[in-house]
Design a protein around this nucleic acid. Structure first.
Lengths: 134, 134
DNA sequence: CAGTATCCAGATCGATACTG
DNA sequence: CAGTATCGATCTGGATACTG
């Protein structure tokens, strides 16, 4: 196959990866589409300073405590946010975005922007399909 | 807020979107991370000619008939693959990738490549986290 | 061949209640 | 304040059997 398409690059890199790495890549990419991760990161990124659990919860409208905890743990585990606990009463915990997360954002945005720009195309595709009586 | 970060572009575009469009964008992006969609598209893209249902099923190792049907229907609905039925016995149905899907790939790949290149970073983040006894 | 129909297991996520 | 524990509804996807 000629190496003219964007597919070929991925193809080559893909072959060098272990199964573990492959699964981790999937999980990282999945963070971009599960219900809250991107929103939580966005809040932390735009605020751009450490935020308490309850502040994040206010900004991410509709999230439950349980889901916020889980989301933050996942993001922390993957190095996308940091968690700092203070030995105070009442307890204070601060979350912050990491450089690697910001770098990831730089690569997510072009894709997201393209989809957003192309949204009318997708809308008419759906109308055509649904209109065919499926 | 200054418009110096990549975040600001998305911010502006986001404000112009209807809720419907917003949801559709989410769904399109979600296709990138559900279990089979990207793999199915990849098979159709690299083969680069119409493929029968059973050929796709062979190439996408481990997928069930039900999941393949569902995946193809979703992709068809969003205009990412085409479906052509032939009035023959036994029935023949051919699927093909669309230009818009190929265009989407061009925007997905940079992100995917970045994650793949950064995978060792994510791996050590996890080791550090898991090693802390969480 | 290319599905559809049915059943089922596991994961996700919200609501609620409780705790150091 | 920042969680954990528990329950239940919903969704996803696999296995299997059946059909035009």
């Amino acid at each position: 196959m000629p190496t003219t398409t964007a597919l070929s690059q991925a193809q080559e890199l893909c072959d060098t990866l272990t199964d573990d790495a492959d699964e981790l890549i999937r999980e990282i990419i999945t963070r971009l589409t599960d219900k809250w991760s991107l929103w939580v990161m966005h809040v932390l990124a735009t605020t751009d300073r450490p935020m308490r659990f309850s502040r994040v919860m206010e900004q991410v409208e509709g999230i439950s405590q349980k889901s916020l905890t889980k989301t933050l743990r996942q993001l922390e585990r993957d190095g996308l946010v940091t968690r700092k606990m203070f030995a105070e009463v009442p307890p204070r915990v601060e979350y912050a975005i990491t450089p690697i997360a910001l770098e990831m954002f730089e690569h997510v945005e072009p894709l997201w922007l393209w989809v957003a720009k192309s949204v009318t195309l997708f809308q008419s595709a759906r109308e055509a399909f649904d209109g065919r009586g499926k």
